[in-house]
């Protein structure tokens, strides 16, 4: 956080630009908290940057790039496809860690949704989650027993957070917890884009036997705003993609954490 010093507009705009270049999208309330200025000021800054065609404003935030830059959908759908592939790969490894009869918890996120989709191959699994999409998916597929935590619904993530959720959480103990991380920083801090989510993850990590972080390799070195803690305190295992940089493979192994790179090498089965 940058403290309470008043900041010149030009400096603010530089920070916003850098943040967007790194993270591709941002929310107004995040920026207002980070830069200690009102949301109105941030909206004005974003407007100005939109005029420069640096970003496109969205509901409650902004995404990198001008709307004019992306006329055809070919590019974005390609990126979507490859990130979907990354998610499936990770989920495939995760599913092999789940035994029949387990009680697991899935925090909100797209990789964990993918894990929920693949649960169909398991028997008698109970899933605890704060993610409405995950809960409704399991409900439709009837692939497991599902317990949905209560609390304030966050519209952006379609998940519940807050004091209510955390109080609710203390009633449960799970075999395996899958934490989906938005980012993992250079010194192996788990970061997420929402303060409530950070608090939620810290609380969840205390109520599990085995804790597993799931995170695409592209999320490494991408810093989100809110720190949930060092991954060595939060988990025993990390599942990510094989394209993870050597630097991080080194760091994670040396931090005595099991690193699964969901490598899919052997063609077919024996």
């Amino acid at each position: 956080m940058l403290g309470n010093m008043p900041m010149f507009a030009i400096e603010r705009i530089r920070i916003i630009k850098n943040y967007l270049l790194e993270n591709k999208q941002v929310e107004v309330n995040q920026l207002s908290q980070m830069l200690s200025v009102s949301e109105v000021t941030i909206r004005r800054d974003l407007e100005k940057l939109e005029e420069e065609e640096f970003l496109t404003r969205t509901h409650g935030g902004a995404v990198l790039g001008s709307i004019k830059d992306i006329p055809s959908d070919s590019l974005s759908s390609n990126a979507n496809e490859s990130s979907h592939k990354d998610h499936t790969e990770i989920a495939k490894t995760a599913i092999q860690m789940i035994n029949d009869g387990d009680v697991i918890m899935l925090t909100n996120g797209r990789i964990n949704l993918e894990i929920a989709r693949q649960l169909i191959s398991k028997n008698k699994v109970t899933v605890l989650t704060n993610d409405l999409t995950i809960a409704s998916h399991i409900l439709e597929a009837q692939s497991a027993k599902v317990v949905l935590l209560g609390g304030d619904i966050d519209y952006h993530t379609k998940a519940v957070f807050g004091t209510l959720t955390i109080n609710n959480l203390s009633n449960f103990f799970v075999n395996r917890l899958f934490i989906e991380a938005d980012g993992i920083s250079n010194n192996l801090d788990l970061t997420v884009s929402n303060i409530d989510m950070a608090t939620f993850i810290k609380a969840a990590a205390k109520n599990a036997n085995e804790r597993i972080i799931v995170c695409t390799s592209s999320a490494f070195e991408k810093n989100s705003f809110y720190r949930a803690g060092l991954i060595s305190d939060l988990c025993d295992k990390v599942i990510t993609n094989h394209s993870l940089s050597e630097q991080y493979k080194n760091k994670i192994f040396n931090a005595n954490i099991q690193l699964f790179s969901s490598i899919d090498l052997f063609e077919g089965r024996v």
Partner: peptide
């Protein structure tokens, strides 16, 4: 090296 070790274990 350590990074290659993790690749080999995952293989």
């Amino acid at each position: 090296d350590v990074a290659s070790k993790t690749d080999i274990y995952n293989s």
